Amino acid sequence: MLSSFFASVLTRLTLRWPVIVFAATWTACLTLTVALASFSPEVAFVSAISSSSSCESEGLIRVLSDVPGDILCLPAHLFSKSKIDFIVPPVFAAVVVAGSAFLVRALGLWEGDEPR
Rank of each mutant, 00 (worst) to 15 (best):
Val46Lys: 14
Leu64Tyr: 05
Ser80Ala: 15
Glu111Ser: 08
Phe22Cys: 03
Ser53Arg: 10
Val96Ser: 03
Gly59Met: 00
Asp113Ser: 15
Thr33Cys: 07
Thr14Lys: 13
Pro68Tyr: 00
Leu2Cys: 14
Cys29Phe: 15
Gly108His: 03
Ala76Arg: 09
Pro75Leu: 07
Ala106Thr: 13
Ile87Cys: 08
Pro41Leu: 01
Asp70His: 08
Leu78Cys: 13
Trp26Cys: 01
Ser54Tyr: 04
Ser57His: 14
Pro89Ser: 01
Ser80Glu: 12
Phe45Asp: 11
Arg62Leu: 04
Trp17Thr: 07
Cys55Ser: 03
Phe39Gln: 12
Ala98Cys: 13
Leu2Arg: 13
Thr25Ser: 14
Ile84Cys: 06
Leu30Pro: 01
Val46Asn: 11
Thr14Ile: 15
Leu36Gly: 05
His77Ser: 12
Phe86Met: 03
Ser8Gln: 11
Ser8Ile: 10
Ala35Gly: 08
Lys83Thr: 15
Ala101Tyr: 10
Ile20Met: 12
Cys73Leu: 03
Ala93Arg: 02
Ala76Gly: 05
Pro18Glu: 05
Phe92Leu: 04
Asp66Cys: 07
Ser47Cys: 13
Val34Phe: 03
Val96His: 00
Met1Ser: 15
Asp113Ala: 11
Thr14Gly: 11
Asp70Ile: 08
Glu111Pro: 00
Glu56Gln: 09
Ser53Lys: 15
Pro89Val: 01
Pro90Cys: 06
Gly112Ser: 02
Leu78Val: 14
Cys55Trp: 00
Leu74His: 10
Val43Cys: 05
Leu30Tyr: 05
Ser53Asp: 11
Leu107Ile: 15
Ile49Arg: 03
Met1Val: 13
Ala48Pro: 01
Thr11Ile: 09
Trp110Thr: 04
Gly59Gln: 01
Thr11Arg: 10
Glu42Ile: 10
Ala98Phe: 07
Ile49Ala: 02
Glu42Trp: 10
Ile61Phe: 00
Lys83Pro: 02
Cys73Arg: 00
Ile61Val: 08
Leu103Asn: 11
Val19Asn: 12
Ile84Leu: 07
Ser54Pro: 02
His77Thr: 06
Glu42Gly: 09
Ile20Trp: 09
Val63Cys: 00
Ile49Lys: 02
Leu72Tyr: 06
Val104Asp: 01
Pro18Thr: 07
Glu58His: 12
Ile84Val: 13
Leu107Met: 10
Val96Glu: 00
Ala48Ser: 05
Val104Asn: 00
Phe86Val: 02
Ala98Arg: 07
Ala94Arg: 05
Ala106Met: 04
Ser52Cys: 13
Leu15Ala: 12
Ser38Val: 05
Phe79Arg: 06
Val19Cys: 11
Met1Lys: 11
Gly69Lys: 04
Thr25Gly: 14
Ser65Gln: 07
Val46Gln: 09
Ser47Met: 13
Leu78Pro: 01
Leu109Ala: 04
Glu56Lys: 14
Ile87His: 08
Thr25Asn: 15
Glu42His: 11
Phe45Gln: 13
Ser80Phe: 09
Ala94Asn: 09
Ser52Ala: 12
Asp85Pro: 00
Ser3Arg: 14
Ile84Met: 04
Arg62Pro: 00
Pro115Ser: 00
